[in-house]
């Protein structure tokens, strides 16, 4: 046991954290390189911006997912949370409520959904997978019941303008998600809450004895996940101009994939904001490239699956045992 601890002096820290991010970055570079060689115009500025825009919604969800996964949980309900938040704030806007108020209401719905998840996990003590599987159906049903299954159409142009605008040549949606990512990075690296998340996911019992507020930390993670789902929903309905109660189907899977590619461990206690963003861009770039190559969507699905498995295998091999 202890013999091996004499090896690897200082590099262990780097190896545990930023080395993993570097690995994800290499993965991204390889994928970009492959598509750049195969697809003419892949590296065109417009296409690169396109990739970022197409990745932004998944990145937004995946950031929340990363925090939840680090805390040792999982949030399968992000898609329906987004849908519920979208249809409620859209119907408020259609009814003439000023859009900032409607957006705020959408955010509040997202956080409320997260709060319910968090309370069931942290106070009632149910397993996160089952809790959010249950609320996945529940929130989706609420969105469908609320709208009668019909899309909410006719969103005000002023609202749509914000999410379709751009700044410094970048779509506003991308900038918003970038800001969220920076905040998430600061939260994880520089605040007590971030340390608590890592501790709760890394060893809940020890965190409890050390005085970490376990329940509050978990609930906050789910609320942030709900809030970011709601933000993703606003970006989407701003782009589409309509809110469908079925929007966000299978979003949770892409978000989990991005987090996992980025190095989050579903066992908890480990995860990286930078990695997750890179993971989301990897998935986005791959879909973009395959679409430009006119590859059938069946094969896109196949590629997504293989990328996830490859990332996990590389992770396993480079990390060695235990």
């Amino acid at each position: 046991m202890s013999q091996t601890t004499l090896v690897q002096p200082r590099t262990e820290f780097l190896r545990g954290f930023s080395m993993r991010d570097a690995g994800t970055l290499i993965g991204l570079v390889v994928i970009l390189g492959v598509f750049g060689a195969l697809v003419p115009g892949f590296f065109a500025e417009r296409n690169l911006i396109n990739i970022l825009q197409q990745s932004s919604i998944n990145a937004c969800l995946a950031l929340g997912m990363t925090l939840v996964i680090i805390s040792g949980g999982i949030d399968l309900s992000v898609g329906p949370t987004a849908a519920l938040s979208a249809v409620i704030s859209a119907s408020m806007m259609v009814a003439g409520v000023p859009f900032p108020l409607a957006i705020a209401a959408g955010f509040a719905i997202g956080m409320l959904c997260g709060l319910v998840n968090g309370i069931l996990v942290a106070y009632v003590g149910l397993q996160p997978f089952i809790v959010t599987l249950g609320t996945l159906s529940t929130y989706r049903a609420l969105a469908l019941i609320y709208t009668g299954g019909n899309p909410v159409l006719g969103l005000p142009p002023s609202f749509r303008a914000i999410f379709n605008g751009s700044l410094f040549g970048l779509p506003l949606a991308v900038i918003i998600v970038a800001v969220v990512a920076i905040i998430a990075w600061i939260v994880l690296k520089k605040t007590p809450f971030g340390e608590y998340l890592l501790a709760v996911g890394g060893n809940e019992e020890a965190a409890y004895i050390a005085g970490v507020p376990i329940a509050r930390t978990k609930i906050a993670a789910y609320m942030i996940s709900g809030l970011l789902a709601a933000l993703a929903a606003q970006i989407l309905i701003g782009r589409l101009g309509a809110a469908e109660p079925i929007l966000g189907n299978l979003w949770e899977l892409d978000a989990i994939a991005a987090a996992a590619i980025g190095g989050a461990s579903l066992m908890g206690g480990k995860g990286s904001v930078i990695g997750t963003i890179l993971g989301a861009v990897i998935l986005g770039a791959m879909r973009n490239g395959l679409t430009l190559m006119n590859v059938q969507s069946f094969y896109q699905l196949l590629a997504t699956g293989l990328i996830i498995l490859a990332a996990m295998l590389i992770d396993r091999v480079t990390r060695g045992r235990g």
Partner: peptide
């Protein structure tokens, strides 16, 4: 192992866990 340490975190983080508020 079970109640004391958060294994993946550094010595510093493990030390500071009970007094995070003071450092922030």
């Amino acid at each position: 192992k079970r109640e004391g340490i958060v294994p993946l975190r550094s010595i510093t983080s493990n030390m500071a866990l009970a007094s995070m508020g003071v450092f922030a």
